[in-house]
Design a protein around this nucleic acid. Structure first.
Length: 926
RNA sequence: GCCGAAGUGGCGGAACUGGCAGACGCGCACGACUCAAACUCGUGUGGAGUAAUCCGUGUGGGUUCGACUCCCACCUUCGGCACCA
């Protein structure tokens, strides 16, 4: 057994031992409290990158910490394996999506194992496996049978050229990124889930320990607004329903505006306006929703030629089409009140439409012709017939007296009624793609729909498919898949849409409970013990969609009775199931993103001939920046960008100079020698998200090979604020590397000149014990609050203490032994391999991971001497040490006696003296 | 554009509930070891100044005995915006 720390040897050995002894198998054990720790499952994109480690390692460390604190911990892993990239690979490289996906999963599994995480691989779940998507389909069916799945219309990115739907990420500047062909917004019939039915319940976060920003974002995403719906009739009798949050301003409605996609547009447009409207719609469909919703963008519209009657006063008002009205919100039509809505105001001014103020504060005298902006404040109703004089506050809905009165009146007259609208839309789950879970529906010849029977689930994706370069889903062409028969024997066509992958990831933590279970999505016996998820970790980029869908799904499952067996099983075990199925994950914490490393470009001296402002260089030399000559005949500076043989170099004057390197130029890079190629020149890389195309992806495997998994783990926890993330820096890893090597040598190497100390309570031993307990406290607090960097920092500081203690008489004393044992148990969650190895080497029983997290004693941790800073008028002037229990009077008296303080209070009067216990004295002198 | 967040030494970051800004580390400098380099060890390290001292947590204001922390306005960067996952 070597005394050298060689992570490459010990890590593999312990990983095997843990697997052999099933150290991380999580089994139901009702005698212990459970802890379900979940981290977002990865998409199998090909290689694990450092971002996956950053997400998973701290979660693993915390799961280990919980385990040491006596919990029976479940920490599973799987793959969210359906999705677009597999299909892109199929089109571009002619690989079947399944083959591509499973190969990636295999590779990533191996990489994941090198983490040394406590994943229980027996619980792995793959969303693209038929045994999994059988239940995804089953869930669809349940939602359908419970009236929560329906067909409706939604806008899609449509490529006329390819006759196919494009994902948002495939559309750049309104064009297909591959072909450059224009993309339009087209309405298409698709499947939806009625998430809006759960909107109000989703607004309730009472049971959740989730980050405040996430709750706010979800609340805003749902966007509940209270108001009224009112029916306007066109002169030809067509009804246009509008939703308004301001029924109190109905008398100020001077025009109506329909979304370009509104179904009435075609019908009500007058013959004279037909061509103009047609042309307008054609250009409007090219605009994305974000652009249309932008308030800074100039609003556009066109008159339909039709008029509607304002039901409250019989006024004849024009009906327009405007692109700031969204078909996806409300009814896709608005009543426009330019005097009191800025968007309507801008529109009215642009097109010369009437503006009638109907709310006016005390002391104002609004005139629609001269108003410069919409008035959105409180006031009294004017120009509103019998409502004139009614007060309108800033309150929303019924709480506003004006709105309240008007709604009552509308309801009495049957013109409108109170209504609530949500910004959130129903969940569109249809995807016109192959690589997703099939929607188990049949279209019968008579036009009716039929849901596939349970016995026929899952509807399998056919393997023998070919990807046409058109981009169309191959399911559409696959006769064997497409043609089937309905239950009555009549011919039927299968639904060719597949499901949104968010559907797969809306229930995966249930599948982890029993991935082989066949009778239901999950085994109620497992669920009764493990549910709900206690801690969920993942990126904040999932704030609204995934996390909202997950909550919705959980509530739907509850209401459909999917948890009934689980609740029954809980009861037989004496666990009260009440309210346990309202939310899927009780605690949520988000980590940030690891960005690419900033790299500095080569500093070059280039010489050749100038062509106006461009240098044609036949000689390029890379030099050290500090060796840069003051004057140089040519160009010098850092390479900021390089495209082929064109360099953009930042010169001393901070300008970019273009250098064209000739084909036969002599290029010298000191580390690589002479005659280098232009492609070996390194250019400056800014801090950006990692992506293959930018060439800034950090591969963790390299670092694991070089430093070992424990070092990479420790570094990732130490070097970043976990919630924030930040740019990767490969330099900083030296700190954690030295730290682990120090811990190793502290434990393994004999002390050079330490004396064995047996005497129990010398002052030095007391100090070491104090530090030991302070470290326990710091580590415990940090891990509880997900502050992984301060957890490691506390261990490093403890290392420093042990380092000097080792050279003192403390070495070998009981206090020393306690300290070492504590160090190894505290380190175990962060660096599981080295702590296991050292645990064994210091004569303990396998395994360190089955030890109890050390308890800290506040009395041992307490300082008996404190250092008090003394401030005069808020500025530090001196300090003194005192017993920790010094009284306020004594502290203030001592403070005034200090030489550094006297200097500053001389000739002044102390008007106030503040003592902050154990910290500082502030003297206010005048 | 809208919603959410962040901004602290050369760099990553720390700072309990408003209480001594810069813990812990990287880097750097000097010294020891070495023929030498690397490693390792020791010391120092926010900036300016010989010093007293002054300045300093994105910018500008405010509240307070005291502000990285609270309030107002602004700037920059990042995440999300419904078919990337």
């Amino acid at each position: 057994m070597t005394n050298q720390y060689i992570p490459q040897i010990i890590e593999k050995r312990w990983q095997d031992k843990w697997a052999d002894t099933e150290l991380y198998r999580s089994k139901v054990d009702w005698s212990k409290p459970k802890h379900y720790a979940l981290t977002m499952l990865p998409y199998p994109s090909g290689d694990l990158h450092i971002g996956h480690w950053f997400a998973m390692i701290p979660s693993d460390a915390r799961a280990r910490f919980m385990r040491m604190r006596g919990y029976n911990v479940l920490f599973p892993m799987g793959f969210d394996a359906f999705g677009l990239p597999a299909e892109n690979a199929a089109v571009q490289r002619n690989i079947h999506p399944a083959r591509w996906t499973y190969a990636n999963i295999e590779r990533m599994r191996k990489q994941l194992r090198t983490m040394g995480a406590m994943f229980d691989w027996k619980r792995e779940a793959l969303s693209c496996d038929p045994s999994y998507y059988r239940w995804t389909e089953w869930f669809f069916k349940q939602l359908y049978l419970h009236g929560l799945a329906y067909r409706g219309e939604a806008l899609v990115n449509w490529s006329e050229t390819l006759q196919t739907v494009l994902a948002n990420e495939q559309v750049i500047d309104g064009k297909d990124e591959r072909t450059g062909q224009p993309v339009i917004q087209k309405l298409m019939t698709q499947w939806f889930f009625s998430i809006t039915k759960y909107a109000d319940e989703l607004l309730n976060f009472d049971k959740l320990d989730w980050p405040e920003p996430i709750k706010i974002m979800q609340t805003n995403w749902i966007g509940r607004s209270e108001g009224a719906k009112v029916i306007f009739k066109t002169e030809s009798g067509d009804e246009i329903e509008v939703f308004t949050t301001r029924p109190d301003t109905l008398w100020g409605a001077t025009f109506m505006a329909l979304a370009p996609e509104h179904e009435l547009v075609e019908k009500i447009t007058s013959p004279e306006q037909q061509d103009a409207v047609q042309a307008y719609i054609e250009q409007a469909v090219k605009t994305t929703e974000i652009e249309r919703a932008s308030e800074s963008r100039e609003k556009t519209g066109i008159f339909t030629g039709a008029y509607a009657i304002n039901p409250v006063n019989g006024q004849r008002i024009p009906v327009w089409i405007a692109d700031y009205v969204m078909i996806t919100y409300g009814s896709g039509a608005i009543m426009a009140v330019p005097a009191h809505d800025q968007r309507d105001f801008d529109f009215a001014r642009k097109y010369g439409l009437k503006i009638i103020p109907v709310i006016q504060p005390e002391g104002e005298n609004f005139d629609g012709d001269t108003m410069t902006e919409a008035y959105v404040g409180s006031g009294q109703m004017i120009n509103s017939a019998q409502f004139n004089g009614t007060a309108c506050s800033n309150a929303k809905g019924r709480k506003n007296p004006g709105i309240n009165a008007v709604i009552d009146w509308l309801e009495e007259r049957g013109i409108g009624q109170e209504d609530i609208n949500y910004r959130m839309r129903d969940w569109l789950i249809s995807r016109q793609r192959y690589w997703g879970a099939p929607i188990p529906m049949l279209h019968k010849e008579d036009g009716n729909l039929e849901v596939v029977s349970d016995a026929d689930l899952p509807v399998l994706l056919p393997d023998d498919v070919e990807f046409m370069p058109t981009g169309q889903s191959p399911l559409v062409y696959h006769k064997g898949f497409l043609n089937t028969i309905a239950s009555d024997g009549s011919p039927a066509r299968r639904e060719t849409d597949t499901m949104d992958t968010f559907m797969c990831s809306s229930w995966y933590w249930f599948r982890y409970l029993s991935p082989q279970y066949n009778a239901a999505p999950f085994d109620p016996e497992e669920a009764a013990y493990w549910l709900p998820v206690d801690v969920y970790t993942g990126g904040a980029e999932h704030a609204t969609m995934h996390l909202l869908y997950a909550r919705f799904f959980n509530k739907v499952m509850r209401d459909m009775g999917v948890f009934d067996d689980t609740a029954a099983a809980m009861k037989t075990r004496g666990r009260d199931p009440d309210a346990l199925f309202d939310e899927p994950m009780l605690t949520l914490r988000n980590q940030g993103q690891i960005l690419g490393e900033e790299t500095i470009g080569h500093y070059v001296l280039a010489s050749g001939r100038w062509e106006s402002k461009k240098l044609i260089a036949d000689k390029v030399e890379v030099i050290d920046r500090s060796d840069a000559p003051k004057e140089f005949d040519g160009a010098q500076g850092e390479i900021m960008r390089r495209t082929e043989n064109i360099l953009q170099v930042q010169t001393a004057s901070d300008e970019l100079t273009t250098i064209e390197v000739t084909a036969d130029a002599q290029i010298t890079i000191p580390t690589l020698g002479e005659s280098c190629s232009v492609t070996q020149l390194q250019h400056h890389l800014e801090i950006q998200r990692m992506s293959k195309s930018k060439g800034n992806v950090v591969n963790p495997d390299e670092f694991v090979q070089l430093y070992g998994s424990d070092t990479v783990r420790t570094y990732l926890m130490f070097a970043f604020d976990w919630q924030k993330g930040g740019p990767w820096n490969s330099q900083g890893i030296k700190g954690p590397q030295r730290f682990l090597e120090d811990v190793w040598s502290i434990v393994v190497d004999p002390a050079k000149d330490g004396l064995a100390e047996t005497e129990a309570e010398t002052k030095a031993a007391r100090n070491l014990r104090r530090k030991t307990h302070q470290t326990i406290q710091a580590c415990t607090d940090s891990l509880e609050t997900f502050s992984f960097n301060t957890y490691i920092a506390a261990l490093m500081a403890f290392r420093n203490t042990l380092h000097s203690a080792k050279r003192s008489a403390l070495y070998g004393s009981p206090a020393w032994e306690e300290a070492i044992e504590t160090m190894l148990t505290l380190l175990a969650p962060a660096a599981p391999h080295i702590s296991e190895e050292l645990w064994m080497r210091s004569g303990h029983q396998y395994s360190v991971h089955q030890q109890v997290w050390p308890a800290f004693d506040p009395e041992i941790a307490a300082e008996d001497e404190i250092s008090v800073g003394v401030l005069v008028n808020g500025k530090v002037r001196d300090r003194f040490t005192a017993p920790a229990d010094i009284s306020q009077e004594d502290a203030i008296a001592q403070a005034q006696d200090l030489p550094g303080v006297k200097r500053h209070i001389e000739g002044k009067r102390i008007v106030k003296a503040i003592y902050v216990t154990g910290r500082l004295v502030n003297l206010v002198a005048k």
